[in-house]
Design a protein around this nucleic acid. Sequence first.
DNA 1: GGGATTTGCCGTCAAGAGCAACAAATACCC
DNA 2: GGGTATTTGTTGCTCTTGACGGCAAATCCC
Lengths: 399, 399
Amino acid sequence: MASVVDRLGTFDGVHRRNLSKLLALAHLEGPLSRARLTSETGLNRSTVAALATELVDLGLVEERAPDPTKRVGRPSPVVAVHPGVQVIAVNPEVDAVTVAAVGLNARIVVRERLEVDHLVTPDETAELVAGAIARWRRAELAGVRLIGVGLAVPGQVRHSDGLVRWAPHLEWTDAPVRALVEAATGLPTQVANDATLGARAEHLFGAGRGVDDLVYLNGGASGIGGGLVVEGRLVGGARGYAGEFGQNRPGISSAGDRRAPDGVLEDEVSRARLLEVVGRASADEPTLAGLLAASEDPAVADELARQQRILATALGNAINVLNPSLIVLGGFLATLAEWNPDALDAAVAAQALPVAAEGLEIRVAELGENRLLIGAAELAFADLLADPLAEQLVDPLVG
Amino acid sequence: MASVVDRLGTFDGVHRRNLSKLLALAHLEGPLSRARLTSETGLNRSTVAALATELVDLGLVEERAPDPTKRVGRPSPVVAVHPGVQVIAVNPEVDAVTVAAVGLNARIVVRERLEVDHLVTPDETAELVAGAIARWRRAELAGVRLIGVGLAVPGQVRHSDGLVRWAPHLEWTDAPVRALVEAATGLPTQVANDATLGARAEHLFGAGRGVDDLVYLNGGASGIGGGLVVEGRLVGGARGYAGEFGQNRPGISSAGDRRAPDGVLEDEVSRARLLEVVGRASADEPTLAGLLAASEDPAVADELARQQRILATALGNAINVLNPSLIVLGGFLATLAEWNPDALDAAVAAQALPVAAEGLEIRVAELGENRLLIGAAELAFADLLADPLAEQLVDPLVG
DNA sequence: GGGATTTGCCGTCAAGAGCAACAAATACCC
DNA sequence: GGGTATTTGTTGCTCTTGACGGCAAATCCC
């Protein structure tokens, strides 16, 4: 695969990079005028015009009549991504596989939650995805150009080949998910960890928009995962396993704060313990947040404060090492943070090196239940966005 | 011919990038043939020829007669960086300021340790540097082209303006070191944290050569600092404070392992505690290593094992989050690791997520006492290497 | 010494971004 | 409502600079 980077030295590489820049802008910022594209890219008017028409010819963007604006001067046509360019986003969970078609405009076109009454296997997942595509092809996706498939898997995924090394709750071990889905769908497929993709989504479209250095932590029923963005780039690490905050061991200064013998973050800061303290077997996130906020039981406040303290230490460690400008918390960690934001801020400030915490913001994730699908779609779009010309070689036709 | 094209094609700097690539190769790999440059860059023969002669004209590289090789075919001239292109590297410490001139070939040309009998101030540092340059100008540096100054400061340095926010041992607070040194020397100056620059040096020329994802930790007399390289790039974070591992709080599972009330890594894993356990007030690193290795006192082994355990947890946390392929340990952490590498490996493997630790290597830093100077020099060379043409606007005074 | 091989050198080509002049479309002022 | 200013698309041209190909040079091997 000839990546753009390989050819950066050539003019061809420049051209491709410019195409990529334009497409990415239209993708991330939504429809924008050609005039804004020129100022945003720093390229010449005529260059942008040529590039835009090239993208139109490639079927990747559309040019519309200018939006009515109140400004002087000739109105500039609006460039928007082509709505027919889409990917399939997949999120297998213990009780269901969610499949969606997502447009290049990051909008979800179709979304279906396919419930299963047993633990889904990798093969079943591939079949479910292929089945959904086949069904949608006859209606919602008629005439749509599918670029690829992206999967958000709750487990550790090897970046190089999309092998799911271990997904404890799905009970998948060394599952060749990428190959299976590619075989079943005929579409180029990418697989990654769900929390990492959540970080990607929040970075591009959520609470982390425009922030170049951030840490994202998500609290799920099964544990804590996350991702990091450094200099605007999502960090995968050597093999793609980066972001596993849940298995970290943060310092616990007071012995009374320790609950789990091993002191792993996700055993100490856990949704199950919150449910337990309010005496519920299960609850969705808003319900849990409501219960926690309404409770006057001191044990509830104690537990929340304890979890905040430990989370603060884990965050402090990350802040010292990465010096991010933003921390985004999702899932029950958002609930935990919002229960008493000031206390969390103070605890983090106390646990991190003062200069590293300067100007740091802690925010709650913005994207809702579609976060993982958006992230998975982004993964599937990545190649196209990086090099809009490369995709033309592949013929993405599926019955 | 081939005079510098001042009319910089407002083009996307393909040309500049290619010049940069060539110069960086010559800088990092040492002298290499033009033929190797072509294969390494993927550029055309004629293109490389043009670029190389341009770099020669810029006075940045030299072309020599071909090295005698035993291979068939016309021999290719050797391209080597110009020995007269140098920077000044500076490392202020509590009892001395080390100043050196470092060539673009990463060789140290002159090096002087300027002892001081009191805590050196930022102003004094600038004066000492300027004085050294003035002295050297008359001999070692006659005719040398100085590109800039790089400082490795043991403290937290704000990336944007080179302000030393806090250097506890030097007792500097908000010291405008960059401005002071620039004023005193007339040379463009860069400042960064010493451990971060150590990471840079080890990454480019030491134990981390060719590794794209690594974590570097250095144990000094005063604490533990470090740096991280992600996708081949040194991570600074939002403001440049990244890498402060020493202030992290790792989990300490056994209460008996805790020594410091606050549980900060550098209070638990500390050179002072090692010196104490062998009953010495001070010792240089080889001496300390010898004493530790020779001791049969069980208390020594206990302390070493304890520090290894805690270090392993801190490393495990970093591994889970960053999934590096290499960890480089310097200073007394190297001593600690080498005392029993297998035990450390095992402890790290036990503390990190198995997949994240797969294929992980733990190595000892390779560069010796010149590490910080090399790193500081690299910092000073960075702008030139990134864009060899930009530097031409500045006329660095000579003689 | 001849053939093979590799590489430098030079002239030519061409991709593609920049540029400038002109035209078009709007707002604003009178 | 018409003239002017302003912004931006369009078009044809220039120019930089990397690629290409033929030829010469320098080496090794037989």
